[in-house]
Simulated scan of single mutants.
Amino acid sequence: MRKIIPSIFERYPDQVRELDLEFCFTKDLYFSAWHTFVSLRNIYSHSHGVIDEDDRLDLLDRISEFRSGYENSFINSESENSLILESMSPNSDDLFDEDKIKTGKFYFIEDKELNIFKSLITKLLWVVSQS
């Protein structure tokens, strides 16, 4: 699962560059978001959403990487829209409430987090489908 996004970026470099230019969706953002959501998917599918200590530590690391990629996507983007998009986007500290990621508890992903993932993937699939 973790190799899907890297293989798309390798196969369609010109198309995925358009995502950065238009939406500030950089390669680092895609990779870190994908790894975060794969970790969440694994928790939901393998332990029915109940987090064990290894899952918690992995998820916290992935979230940290995601936040960095998310913030840097606006800073490092070549998009002329970066300032506008940054002002409309949630702050990275408001994503993935770490206080809710507890061992032995179920983690509910919030709509704002799910919407970011949905936007990333739908834009990626649309750009690649244009090839």
Rank of each mutant, 00 (worst) to 15 (best):
F108D: 05
L29S: 00
L57W: 08
N115Y: 05
S79I: 01
F106E: 15
S47T: 06
K118G: 01
F96G: 06
L120D: 00
S39Q: 15
E78Q: 14
E80P: 04
S129L: 03
K3Y: 08
E71V: 11
K105F: 11
L40Y: 04
S79L: 05
L40E: 07
K100M: 14
D93E: 13
T36P: 03
S73Q: 08
E113R: 00
I75T: 14
P90D: 14
I121M: 14
F96L: 12
E18G: 07
L85D: 02
C24D: 05
P6F: 07
V128Q: 09
G49M: 03
G49V: 06
H35L: 14
L85M: 13
Y70F: 05
S32G: 07
G49P: 03
S47W: 00
E18F: 09
N72E: 00
K3C: 07
Q130T: 15
R17K: 10
I75G: 12
L21W: 01
E71R: 14
S64Q: 04
S68Q: 12
F66S: 01
D111S: 05
L114H: 15
I109E: 10
D58G: 11
D55V: 09
R41V: 09
E18Q: 13
I4W: 11
N42I: 07
E86Q: 15
V38Q: 12
Y44T: 03
I84H: 12
I84S: 13
L85C: 10
I63H: 04
H35N: 13
F66R: 02
V127D: 13
D52I: 00
S87T: 05
F31N: 13
S119C: 08
D93T: 11
I116G: 00
I121P: 02
D94C: 05
I8E: 08
V38I: 12
L114Y: 14
R17C: 00
D54L: 09
I101P: 15
D54F: 09
Y12V: 03
L95T: 05
P90Y: 09
I75M: 10
S7K: 06
F31M: 11
N42W: 08
I51V: 15
L83M: 13
S87N: 06
K118D: 10
L21H: 11
K27H: 10
V128T: 02
I8M: 04
L125S: 05
